[in-house]
Simulated scan of single mutants.
Amino acid sequence: MNPFQFSGEPGFHAPHVVLPSGESTLDVWGAGWVLLAGPDGGWDQIDAGIQYRSLGDQYDRFGVGREGASLLRPDGIVAWRTTSKADEATLKNVLRQVLSC
């Protein structure tokens, strides 16, 4: 895979983008698990005990579309992504699996 064409595939480092908050994806590494989401998925309404950041118009860089989300590990590696709208049960199941609890 061409390293200049990464688009948020699980198992790879998250692409560097500037988020609407003014932070970049580099700023959120090391701060715990972070859910990066497209603007139309409703992910900000889910209380999963992890940080949330909007991708704004950068959602295509993560391959999640306007409704999807990407789960970022503390080391900047993408653990999971979806193009579907928010689903609390799915997200909590994913967290149980990746956190082994």
Rank of each mutant, 00 (worst) to 15 (best):
P3D: 12
P3V: 11
P3M: 07
F4H: 12
F6A: 14
F6V: 14
G8V: 04
G8M: 11
G11H: 01
H13K: 12
A14T: 14
P15T: 12
P15M: 04
P15W: 07
H16I: 10
V17P: 03
V17N: 04
V17C: 08
V18G: 02
V18W: 10
P20W: 08
P20L: 09
P20A: 02
S21K: 10
S21W: 04
E23Q: 14
S24H: 09
S24A: 03
T25D: 02
D27V: 04
D27I: 05
V28A: 08
V28W: 01
V28M: 08
W29K: 15
W29D: 09
G30V: 01
G30Q: 00
A31W: 06
G32R: 08
G32H: 06
W33A: 00
L35Q: 01
L35C: 10
L36I: 06
A37F: 05
G38R: 00
P39C: 00
G41C: 01
G42T: 06
G42R: 02
D44L: 05
D44F: 06
Q45N: 15
Q45K: 15
D47L: 05
I50V: 14
I50C: 06
Q51P: 02
Q51K: 07
Q51M: 06
Q51F: 02
Y52P: 04
Y52M: 07
Y52V: 02
R53I: 01
R53K: 14
S54P: 06
L55K: 12
G56K: 09
Q58K: 12
Q58H: 11
Q58A: 13
Q58W: 11
Y59S: 14
D60R: 14
R61E: 02
F62K: 11
F62C: 04
G63V: 05
G63H: 05
G63T: 09
V64A: 12
G65W: 01
G65P: 09
R66C: 01
E67Y: 07
E67S: 08
E67M: 08
A69F: 14
A69V: 04
L71N: 03
L72W: 08
R73C: 04
P74M: 11
P74V: 02
P74K: 13
D75W: 07
D75E: 02
G76H: 12
I77C: 11
V78G: 03
W80V: 02
R81Y: 00
T83Y: 04
T83S: 11
S84W: 07
K85C: 08
K85A: 13
A86Y: 09
E88L: 05
A89S: 09
A89D: 05
T90S: 12
L91K: 05
L91C: 00
K92N: 13
K92Y: 03
K92D: 01
N93E: 10
L95I: 14
L95D: 01
R96Y: 10
Q97E: 15
Q97L: 13
Q97P: 00
Q97W: 11
V98Y: 13
V98L: 05
V98A: 02
L99R: 10
S100I: 10
S100G: 03
